[in-house]
Design a protein around this nucleic acid. Sequence first.
DNA 1: GAGTTTGAAACT
DNA 2: CAGTTTCAAACTC
Length: 492
Amino acid sequence: MEPGNQQQVQPPAPPAAQLMAPPHPPQPRPVAQVHAVFSSTRQWPMSFTPIKPMVEIKSVTPPKRKKQCNCKNSHCLKLYCECFAAGLYCDGCNCKQCGNKVENEHARQEAINSTKLRNPKAFQPKIENVPSTLSVRKDAGAPSLPKHNKGCHCKKSGCLKKYCECFQANILCSKNCKCMDCKNFEGSEELQAIIQGDNASDKNSIQQAANVTLNGAIGSSGYKYSPVRRKRHPEDPLGPEANHFDASQVASSSGLEGCIGYQSRSKMVYRSPLANTVHPTDVNDLANHLVIACRKATEAFLTIADNKVEMEVERGIHTNADLNNDSMKNREVQNGVISQPDVATHIDQRTAGDLESPCGNTQEDYRPASPGTQALLCDEQGTAFGSDYRTSFPAAFHDQDTPKLSVLQEKTVLTGLREYLRVIITRGKINANNSAGMTEANASSEPAMELDARRNHGATTGPGVSSLPSEAVERPKAPGDPENPRTSDPSA
DNA sequence: GAGTTTGAAACT
DNA sequence: CAGTTTCAAACTC
């Protein structure tokens, strides 16, 4: 068929079109629209021509026709053909022996039926917006994230080339994908390198960045949750399903769901100011800080407790009857019957099993805690603190001074947590200001804005580099530096 | 623009 | 369902 001699129009509501879901073939994106493809910290190469998004903004300029196919052997009646796969007639394509035209509707319908026979979902959109998996936000206008229904199966492209359907669609790979050596995930330095290549607005530089990353010049991101080294390992105890990282889920679980997806701004996906700021390493650091703070507090108070235990053993204060009463009263305390000071004099020497925590675990510290604290204790006893936490708090520790000691201990731990959270909050504020500054700087040519934008850019350059307060940016923080939020011990 | 690479689709 | 082939787009030179 001669090029330009074909129609590429929406079928006039043929039966197949009625059955088909709206197709979403790769579509060139107007430059103005591409300009909108960036978020506060992530921009997409301007030369990128992603698959038509699910929510397409109305362009001021007439929407361009999809690009013409070049099919030679498929007669444009198989899914190889983009037009056919999109449910469109060929129009102005460069295809040969095209059967995807109005005058060939009968054969076309047969091809459609045949295709649907093989795969009933063949004409359904590959990219769909799925709601965030973070349950707590589902009712709060949680952002919907585009996701590839089938997922890609890339092996060599690292999912960083347009061979990859996910990459082409401007979305991150998900658990649906079965790709190998994937680098198309949140936090991927390789992906960041490509996106930052957008600053050069140079196609070659962008692809060069992709090649560099694929060749390992930059190396693995080092992110703990990177799927790169975990895929296709049958021996993985977590099983094949766990081999693939679901960006949306991981991000959600870490509160970073706003980072997911690098689709166009037209979708207005929420992006946290902490995007690219709170890293998995930060979470680990926070956990480490809490554990360290807890242990330090324990060590400090344990000495006092030991002394008191020795004193009480010498005195022989308690009788068996007392112990029985203690158990009774402890249970009452658990139910809030007896006031705290009253119990404090009876709680020592009890067995660990005397008290049951709200979550079913024995509770070493009888002191009533806030629901949040209780939840933390329930969660942490089995994980971060584990048996170490329990052995660090012998039953003898709970004497009449226990409430005071526990208060001090909790204060120490929470102080450390507070200090760390302050650092995180500061980062978020800086990022939020950066985003606002960048936007205003783009819209205005005020020197102050430009200066701010430049400074902000400097603060956020480099993959995974956190945005820190300006003074922190100016002076690199060495490990262990008290001002380094990633390495300092806030409890100190 | 020709040749190569890549991964989805189709086929076995 | 896994392996292979076909196909067209993406990519390289």
